[in-house]
């Protein structure tokens, strides 16, 4: 690929497995993705599709019995997977930051929010005084949309609402001026009006700080409103890659299309009680993946070939790739 030099993050053929008593579970099974500078990239899929494992792998935070078994993750041309642990810790504290779903479990309950944000600032910038660090924390909280930021510095996490906690997490992540922010379901635990605030904040941060964002979400609405490009995952694989507009207007992969059709929308016009489109069956057991395409058993458009041969991710249109035999004529992986 010629565009890789331009990219901030480039993940190639990443494989992460969990070694369980029942066998090797391929949580991420050869995922490739790229994130351009200042870009917001979405990774969307249902529970167990591997989207969180992908995020953890980029940060090399996969816990046992999981392990990255292959592939490459490069940030600004620097390979992360072979980096010594100490240098990788600096990357996590510096160039890449992460925001998780439940801020309460990622904040220290016995330290004030101000202490925690200031600690992050000082870890990043040696020689930064305590007072200076606190002042910078207040500024960052303000940038994250927290009113009365100075007063909030003295609050403990339990004294804050879910929305404020998530803002504190975002402030902590951004105080190190990361090049890349990985946000794993950052608004899933929040109410919709707060979700709208946080998503607005993330878009502002992109324009103000120039950070790139990887947004991991199960929520198609959140992805549609926030991202520039989207990767759809199913059963550990990326099944579709597209710019956000084409994806929602004209999904290519039958899974993406079915998912969008089965989604109840607030702007729906059909009379109440109209049945939803359903995807029959459920996601495959990753320890007993079907041969061929993982989605074939649930796919309305499956042809005999789908049960036999696994399709590769192939270019279907300019900037769009899809893992499906329907589009693979003339070229596969």
């Amino acid at each position: 690929m010629s565009d890789t030099d331009m990219d901030l993050l480039s993940v190639r053929d990443l494989r992460t497995s969990y070694f369980t008593r029942r066998g090797e579970l391929k949580a991420v099974d050869g995922a490739s993705l790229r994130v351009g500078r200042g870009e917001i990239v979405g990774v969307v899929g249902e529970s167990g599709c591997g989207k969180s494992a992908l995020a953890l792998s980029i940060l090399r935070l996969v816990a046992r019995p999981g392990r990255i078994v292959g592939g490459s993750v490069s940030l600004e041309g620097r390979e992360l997977l072979s980096l010594p642990d100490r240098e990788m810790r600096e990357v996590r504290g510096g160039s890449i930051a992460m925001v998780f779903q439940e801020p309460m479990t990622s904040l220290n309950p016995v330290k004030t929010v101000g202490w925690q944000i200031a600690e992050a600032a000082r870890a990043h910038e040696k020689g930064l005084g305590k007072r200076q660090a606190l002042q910078r924390s207040a500024e960052m909280l303000k940038a994250a949309g927290v009113a009365e930021a100075e007063r909030r510095l003295a609050s403990y996490p339990h004294q804050l609402s879910g929305g404020l906690r998530q803002r504190a997490m975002i402030a902590m992540a951004l105080i190190r001026r990361p090049r890349l922010l990985i946000a794993d379901e950052p608004t899933t635990a929040l109410d919709v009006t707060v979700e709208a605030q946080i998503l607005g904040l993330m878009k502002d941060l992109r324009s103000e700080f120039g950070a790139s964002i990887v947004l991991i979400s199960h929520n198609l609405g959140v992805v549609a409103e926030t991202c520039d490009r989207v990767y759809v995952m199913y059963a550990g694989e990326i099944v579709e890659e597209s710019d956000v507009f084409s994806l929602f207007e004209r999904p290519l992969h039958p899974y993406t299309a079915a998912l969008l059709k089965s989604l109840p929308r607030p702007d729906d016009r059909s009379p109440p009680g109209t049945r939803l489109h359903t995807i029959e069956g459920s996601v495959p057991d990753l320890l007993a993946r079907p041969a061929g395409c993982a989605f074939a058993p649930r796919c309305e458009k499956a042809v005999p070939e789908c049960a036999v041969a696994a399709p590769g991710l192939a270019q279907a249109e300019e900037g769009r790739r899809v893992r499906c035999h329907l589009y693979a004529q003339g070229g596969s992986r």
Partner: peptide
């Protein structure tokens, strides 16, 4: 505000400025 906040699975929704409720519950 509640209706406006609900995310729509439509990227074109971003071109309509969103009415966002301010403050805390």
């Amino acid at each position: 505000f509640l209706v406006a906040a609900a995310p729509l699975p439509d990227p074109r929704a971003r071109f309509t400025p969103k009415k966002v409720l301010k403050g805390e519950m």
